[in-house]
Design a protein around this nucleic acid. Structure first.
Length: 547
RNA sequence: AUGCCCGUAGCUCAACUGGAUAGAGCGCUGGUUUCCGGAGCCAGUAAUUCCGGUUCAACUCCGGACGGGCAUACCA
């Protein structure tokens, strides 16, 4: 609550002020936590904006604003001063900082929940890998980002559902079944060639081996079903290892195979609807979506001339279903290789009557795998891919998640497997986890005495003030993650907090002081532990008390 | 060829979506008075690919050049 609350109060003051200057428009000012080299708690740029509009010297405006702010916000703002080109630097009162610190200690892991949020129903759909092979490292990035973003939104107070869309119908599933069947027969000694476009990964052979070991004959095996079932189990196991959970698994068969009383599937119905509204048309015996009218480069096929639906058709039906379930905001995480797909699905949801903003596609750039400087291909069809599981076994889930969440989704990520291994002892995740371990190590040696009064006024050194300020900006950081749809700001924040904490730790001894000071610092450490633990939890990373 | 994303320190990435003297980690150099965990701390080193434009203010927006990735199916 460093700035969100203050922003509201300043808005009233500044708008009043601008009206008094003859302006009748909203001033779009910002309140910011200044860069490290600036010794201020908050910075306000309103004076520069107003000055420009009424063509005056910003420093004069700033002077006038300062007079008003210091009077009206006396409880929060101790002093304010002009800086640089016309910034107003604000300094908090100690009471304000202490009150916020108390809030952390009272609210504990509920801190930063937004009570006034409207509980908007949000769906985050991610991973959604086809059940034709184990998850690979690219899925891992999507999983880490999607899961953490969902955790953050949930914590802030949104009504969030995490969903995995399962493409379990269609030709890929047939090929999967045939691949397993062929491997099964080959292992049984039949001299038959493997499918040209079959799945070549070793996991197919493993499934075939298992089936043989279970002593079943080819005739009594449904290869498609067995393969699907077993691969899905592997996927769920990997996700579990990666601390990723889903609230909902949505099967494509529900919209592509289940029929209503009239013998129509959801896909049939949505295509009928689009055609009835002239959003889709027949050409060359195929059904086309007029996506060009809504910003796409060209129209797309919904139903092929041979009568089979495209992937797009079921995806349109699937999105219709999402909105029918009451979600007002739908977030999809896609690998950047699907970016060409955004325009057509955006077109489709608008045809279904949704606003453009009702769908937010987060494209995360692909992970390029490198091993000893050599690029590694990772197609699931060639069999040359690095399973997520393998990386988890090498570097661990905590380090892997933290690593993925250190970067913004739209920056490309080079993942060198050798480097990842090397980093296992130097990874920044340990730096952050170490904070909590140090706190708990002190708690262990501290004997609480309720007769000693708690006095936060004693926390007045620069290190203590810096630490408190950082802790109470947790809420702002989560709101930035919400606004930018990216959890990486939280990762950065935790690293910075750890940095400030370790500096505090060097300068300010906790145990063995005068009792009152020790008590105040212990309470500060409790707040540190709360924020670090909660922050790591939102990233899906553990925070052990001992390491 | 066209479209989308990216280009920041030797390496991997930040910079609160237009704010002040561009921050971290790793690496490298030097230091750290027997004490709460040295997985730490302190000091030093080093960067916005290039050229224009927009404005009080540009890593951020616009135009162009160069470089990297991805995508351009009646594939899933």
């Amino acid at each position: 609550m460093l700035k969100v609350n203050i922003e509201q109060q300043l808005k009233v003051i500044i708008n009043e002020f601008s009206v008094s200057k003859g302006l009748n428009e909203d001033i779009l000012f910002t309140v910011e936590i200044p860069p490290k080299n600036i010794n201020a708690d908050l910075a306000l740029n309103a004076a520069m904006i107003i000055a420009k509009k009424i063509k005056t010297n910003p420093r004069i405006i700033a002077k006038e604003l300062i007079d008003i702010i210091t009077i009206k916000l006396a409880l929060v703002i101790k002093t304010a001063e002009i800086a640089g080109a016309g910034f107003i630097n604000l300094y908090f009162t100690d009471t304000f900082l202490q009150k916020e610190l108390e809030r952390i200690l009272e609210e504990k892991d509920h801190y930063a929940k937004q009570e006034n949020f409207n509980k908007e129903k949000i769906m985050v759909e991610f991973v959604s890998a086809n059940p034709t092979g184990p998850l690979h490292i690219g899925h891992g990035r999507g999983a880490a980002i999607g899961d953490s973003l969902a955790r953050i939104l949930k914590h802030l107070g949104y009504n969030v559902v995490k969903e995995y869309y399962l493409n379990d119908v269609g030709n890929q599933m047939n090929i999967l079944g045939q691949s397993t069947e062929t491997r099964y027969k080959q292992l049984k000694g039949e001299n038959i060639p493997f499918l040209e476009n079959g799945y070549q990964g070793d996991y197919i052979k493993d499934i075939a081996k298992d089936l043989i070991n279970e002593g079943k004959n080819a005739e009594e095996i449904n290869f498609k079903e067995e393969s699907h079932k077993r691969i899905l189990e592997t996927i769920k196991k990997d996700l579990n290892l990666f601390a990723v959970s889903f609230d909902s698994w949505f099967s494509e068969s529900k919209i592509a195979e289940e029929k209503d009383v009239n013998g129509k599937t959801e896909v049939d119905k949505v295509c009928d609807y689009l055609q009835s509204k002239n959003y889709a048309y027949q050409k060359d015996d195929a059904l086309w979506l007029s996506s060009t009218n809504y910003g796409d480069d060209k129209d797309r096929v919904l139903k092929r001339s041979d009568g089979r639906y495209t992937y797009l058709a079921s995806d349109v039906a699937y999105h219709k279903n999402k909105y029918e379930r009451g979600f007002t905001k739908v977030i999809n995480l896609w690998g950047a290789d699907h970016h060409g797909y955004v325009a057509r699905i955006n077109a489709a949801i608008q045809m279904l009557g949704q606003k453009k903003g009702a769908l937010k596609v987060i494209l995360y750039q692909l992970v390029s795998l490198v091993r000893n400087g050599e690029p590694v291909a990772m197609s699931t069809r060639s069999g040359e891919f690095i399973p997520l599981q393998e990386v988890l076994a090498e570097v661990g889930s905590d380090a892997c998640r933290f690593f993925f969440l250190l970067r913004a989704p739209d920056s490309q990520l080079e993942f060198d497997l050798e480097l990842a291994k090397k980093q296992s002892s130097e990874n920044p995740v340990f730096y952050v986890q170490y904070v909590n371990a140090r706190c708990h190590s002190i708690f262990k040696d501290y004997k609480e005495d309720n007769n000693i009064p708690l006095d936060f006024n004693l926390l007045n050194s620069k290190e203590e003030r810096d630490l408190i300020k950082k802790l109470i900006s947790f809420e702002d950081v989560l709101l930035i993650c919400d606004k930018t749809m990216s959890p990486h700001h939280l990762t950065t924040y935790l690293t910075e907090t750890a940095d400030i904490y370790h500096r505090f730790y060097e300068k300010c001894r906790v145990l063995g002081n005068e009792d009152k000071l020790t008590k105040a610092r212990i309470e500060l450490l409790k707040a540190v532990s709360i924020i670090i633990t909660k922050g790591l939890d939102l990233l899906g990373v553990s925070s052990p008390e001992k390491m």
